[in-house]
Amino acid sequence: MAKISLIVNGNPVNANVDPRTLLVQFLRENLRLTGTHVGCDTSQCGACVVHLDGKAVKSCTTLAVMADGHEVRTIEGLAADGAPLHPMQEAFREHHGLQCGFCTPGMIMTAVDLVNRKGHDLPDHVIREELEGNLCRCTGYQNIVTSIAAGAKAMAKSA
């Protein structure tokens, strides 16, 4: 077992984990943060994307021990329970950016990272290129792209 201490959604977390625990398993099974999904488990689909030190990473391809001493943010960390949704979440709701919702947490965490890196005025082709690592089996992407463009603008206003 290995002792790890990290910050998850702003709260300090200490735990004893088997080193082979994936970050996504740790989040879902130890911390019960089940908003982060496992779609493929083979690093392809992006359903498991969380922020590690502010950057989008695939938590199915990251060991929990490697996050020791670091900061993790999950979809649950974007807006407090009962508080208004994060502008990117709100944009997905408003623009119908989801159907079954399975890919949505990963899409939104990827989108927020994208805005952090590339700003609030995002041409469609940039959004599409940046979604390379996120698969959606329902929407056909059109509304996801629309949602992200709108969410990016809304984030500028709320910042």
Binding site: S43, G46, V49, L52, K55, A56, V57, K58, T61, T62, T110, D113, L114, R117, E130, E132, G133, N134
Partner: peptide, 9 residues
């Protein structure tokens, strides 16, 4: 290389 999340690691 890969996608943005792959490039972050």
């Amino acid at each position: 290389i890969g996608d943005p999340a792959v490039r972050h690691k």
